[in-house]
C-alpha cells in the first residue's frame, strides 16, 4: 500500500516538472500507480525484470491511450510521466558502478539487462499505441475498398 502511494507521488511529481495541466495531474498519478502495481506483481511472480517492465509498460500504454480519449488530451501527457516508475534506474546504476570499479564483465551483464528493460518498456508502449490506432486506420479504409 505504501509503495502504491509512493508510485502515485512518483509520477505526479515528474508530471509537474513536465508542466502537465492541473486537471490531468491526478490521472497521471493513477497511470504511474497502475504501471507500478503491474510491474511489482509480475516482478515477484515471474522473477523476470524484463517481462515485468514489458507488462507494466503495456498497462501504462492501455491506460494512457484510453484516458487520452476520455479527457481529449494527447496520450503522451499520461504515458511520459507514467513510465517513470518503471525506468530501470537500479540496473543503470549498477552498470555505471561496475564500470567505475573496472569490473567490465559484470558491467556488460548488467548493461544488457538494463537495455532489455528499456527495450521492453519501449516495445510495450509501441504495441499498445499500435493496437489503439487500428480502429482509426480500418475506419479510414472502409469508404473506398480498393
Amino acid at each position: 500500500m505504501r509503495e502504491i502511494l509512493l508510485a502515485f507521488i512518483g509520477s505526479i511529481c515528474p508530471g509537474v516538472i513536465y508542466n502537465v495541466e492541473k486537471r490531468n495531474l491526478i490521472w497521471v498519478g493513477f497511470c504511474g500507480m497502475l504501471g507500478w502495481i503491474t510491474y511489482s506483481t509480475f516482478n515477484e511472480l515471474a522473477e523476470s525484470v524484463v517481462l515485468a517492465s514489458f507488462l507494466g509498460a503495456v498497462v501504462v500504454g492501455i491506460y494512457s491511450e484510453s484516458v487520452a480519449r476520455l479527457l481529449k488530451a494527447p496520450a503522451t501527457v499520461f504515458s511520459v510521466p507514467g513510465i517513470i516508475p518503471l525506468v530501470p534506474g537500479i540496473g543503470a546504476y549498477n552498470t555505471i558502478q561496475h564500470i567505475a570499479e573496472n569490473q567490465l564483465y559484470e558491467a556488460a551483464s548488467k548493461g544488457i539487462e538494463t537495455m532489455s528493460c528499456a527495450g521492453a518498456i519501449a516495445f510495450g508502449i509501441l504495441l499498445t499505441s499500435a493496437v489503439f490506432r487500428l480502429p482509426k486506420k480500418l475506419k479510414k479504409r472502409r469508404p473506398n475498398p480498393a
Binding site: P14, I83, I84, V87, A118
Partner: peptide, 10 residues
C-alpha cells in the same frame, strides 16, 4: 531518476 530521458524514448 528525473533526468532520465523518458520523453525522448516515448
Amino acid at each position: 531518476i528525473i533526468m532520465l530521458p523518458g520523453l525522448a524514448i516515448t
